[in-house]
């Protein structure tokens, strides 16, 4: 073994003579081994997600770092998929752009096949936004957040199994329709054929908030409070203080949820050196997706820094 990658895994020339490449396919002969991007280049930092009573809040700042250099300051890392799902990306920005293109083509495919729309309401008709609460869900057939999360986690896991990972940690937020309470293969047995009455229209199940994580390893988990990257250490404890479990999330109002997430974004800007004071914030609920992409951090004050040793320039 020597330092030359093209010799790795092959018999040593000094013992067995020059390696005969002739039987190898042309692409492999006399070339370097196949290599992949195994580390990120331009990166985005944390994404935060928080469930509330009828939706989910998602936030991520607009910075793309090149190492520790704040290289791009206008990179939007929250990508709406449709009216029921939004994806927040942390990690490599070019891989995010690849996944965004992938999701766009998936969305086009879904809409083009006609599977996504209903007859009464094809497309994003404003009529449907009026009934955020209850009522028939006219978009029940579109890919929801849960479908999208399953799909993305398979894509990520496939790529890591190819030793060619997509270097991202993502949050998928939105709505999903819960499965029926109990699977019934035969609601009425042949015995009661004479007694049965006409069944009315199907009881429509109301979509519930959905929030889940997936990363470059194909790992997935779900929680009412989630964060990727540095936020998993800094923001999750703050969010958990307000929302320790699903029951607490079911009581939280939209305003409270946005408030908590904004507070976490501030803490992250104070303590995460790869963060920025301009961010995107997205609320997904029954009414659709509300995405704001240029929110400035409010009430910034560095007064606390003086009292903390090692935080800034200090003489001990």
């Amino acid at each position: 073994m020597n330092h030359l990658p093209q010799a790795w895994g092959r018999p040593r020339d000094d013992i067995y003579g020059a390696y005969d490449h002739s039987y190898l396919p042309q692409t492999h002969a006399n070339t370097h081994p196949t290599t992949h991007t195994q580390s990120p280049v331009v990166t985005g930092t944390s994404v935060l997600g928080l469930k509330f009573k009828d939706g989910v809040v998602l936030a991520a700042d607009n910075l793309a770092s090149y190492g520790s250099l704040a290289r791009f300051t206008d990179v939007k890392r929250l990508k709406p998929f449709n009216r029921k799902a939004v994806v927040g990306f942390g990690g490599d920005v070019s891989d995010m752009q690849y996944l965004d293109r992938l999701l766009n083509s998936l969305d086009v495919q879904e809409n083009y096949s006609g599977a996504a729309t209903t007859e009464e309401d094809d497309g994003e008709a404003p009529a449907a936004t009026a009934d955020g609460e209850g009522g028939e869900d006219k978009h029940k057939a579109i890919l929801d957040a849960k479908n999208l999360h399953t799909y993305l986690s398979k894509v990520l896991y496939k790529r890591r199994s190819d030793f060619n990972p997509l270097w991202n940690a993502i949050l998928v937020a939105g709505l999903t329709t819960p499965p029926p309470p109990a699977p019934s293969t035969s609601t009425s047995s042949p015995k009661d054929t004479t007694t049965s009455k006409p069944t009315g229209p199907a009881p429509s199940r109301k979509p519930i908030p959905y929030l889940a994580y997936a990363d470059l390893l194909g790992t997935t988990y779900s929680s009412p409070t989630l964060a990727t990257g540095f936020g998993a250490h800094l923001a999750v404890p703050i969010m958990r203080r307000a929302v320790p479990d699903e029951a607490a999330a079911a009581k939280l109002s939209r305003e409270e949820a946005v408030e908590i997430v904004k507070k976490c974004m501030k803490v992250l800007f104070y303590r995460d050196a790869r963060s920025m004071n301009e961010y995107s914030l997205c609320v997904i609920d029954g009414k659709g997706v509300d995405l704001q992409e240029n929110i400035k951090l409010e009430g910034e004050s560095w007064a606390f820094a003086e009292g903390i040793k090692g935080y800034g320039t200090q003489t001990v």
Binding site: P180, P183, S184, T185, S186, T187, S189, P190, K191, T193, P201, A202, P203
Partner: peptide, 15 residues
């Protein structure tokens, strides 16, 4: 709706 596909044969369909 809310009922899985099921095949009925033999005695099941007598009624």
């Amino acid at each position: 709706v809310d009922e899985n596909f099921k095949m009925y044969e033999g005695q099941e369909i007598a009624n």
